[in-house]
């Protein structure tokens, strides 16, 4: 049944994907497709927008309106679509570089204005497509082609960033917990505002090989399991124990009117004012 759902939304003639063996991106795409089915929108009412990188190849494989834009700018393009097509489900998929480095400004402002867009972040802590350079979420001390002596900067916590900027649905999961991931993405799409789902996923080729995980998919998946900790469990752990871990779960889920709806209200108000003026005259 699950396979049938995935097939329904895939552009099967575009298979196989560009993703390497052991990459988690296909798992996230699978979750996204099942979430689309659960959300129950027509394919004609969905836009899937991406920037640049491995994650951003997702739209090419999905049979909806798909837009593969420039590095970091997917949310900006998506904002234009959503403003003019408020009834469409607009989903952005992006990598950690897209989201937290080159596109950081768009990310925080979409959160601030609570744009009704769902952002799914394929967070593998590395620039995979360009060959393994350090990213804004590369773990401290990890190795990358541009961090040959180990990463000296702390990683960005995308959940904290989204919460601070005002996103109304913020969650994190990993490709190790797929049923949960399906559920979180559905909730994100349903939320009438800016939703962020940060997904921890492995990159065996560009990250694993340089960080004692080898290219073995199982070892990399094990690593994902080890570095992710559910919220409840994390509450019982010390700061020391939580170092280098990503806490998973739902961090915010609130109803708050976003820009698009406010704009529609404004238009109706202006229309009424014009009609009243007409009656007076």
């Amino acid at each position: 049944m699950k396979t049938e759902i995935v097939k329904k939304y895939l552009r099967l003639d575009k298979m196989p994907t560009v993703w390497c063996p052991g990459c988690g991106h296909g798992i996230i795409m699978g979750s996204l497709l099942r979430a689309l089915e659960l959300r129950g929108r027509s394919k004609n009412d969905i836009a899937l927008v991406s920037g640049i990188g491995c994650s951003s190849r997702t739209p090419g494989y999905v049979d909806v309106h798909t837009l593969h834009t420039t590095h970091g700018r997917a949310i900006a393009f998506a904002t234009g679509i959503k403003m003019m097509k408020p009834d469409m489900s607009v989903i952005v998929v992006m990598g950690d570089g897209d989201c937290a480095a080159i596109g950081g400004n768009h990310f925080i402002h979409a959160a601030r204005r609570n744009m009704d867009i769902t952002a799914v972040v394929y967070n593998n802590g590395i620039y995979g497509m360009t060959g393994g350079q350090v990213s804004p979420t590369t773990p401290y001390d990890a190795f990358a082609t541009t961090a040959p002596y180990g990463q000296m900067e702390p990683p960005f916590d995308i959940v904290e960033l989204a919460l601070g900027a005002g996103a109304t649905y913020v969650a994190r999961s990993s490709v190790h917990n797929v049923p949960k991931l399906d559920e979180l993405i559905v909730k994100g799409i349903k939320n009438n505002g800016f939703s962020v789902i940060d997904v921890i996923t492995p990159c065996p080729i560009a990250y694993g090989r340089r960080n004692k995980l080898t290219a073995d998919p199982m070892k990399n998946m094990q690593w994902v399991k080890e570095v992710t900790v559910p919220r409840k469990k994390a509450e019982e752990m010390s700061e020391e124990e939580l170092r280098g871990k990503w806490i998973t779960g739902v961090f915010r889920d609130v109803e708050h009117v976003g820009l698009v709806n406010l704009y529609i209200e404004l238009e109706e108000k202006l229309k009424r004012a014009k009609e009243n003026k007409g009656e007076e005259a």
């Binding site: 700018r73 900006a76 393009f77």
Partner: peptide, 11 residues
């Protein structure tokens, strides 16, 4: 972003 947004809207 404004250049990106107008392209999205044009689509």
């Amino acid at each position: 972003a404004s250049m990106g947004a107008v392209i999205g809207a044009s689509l």
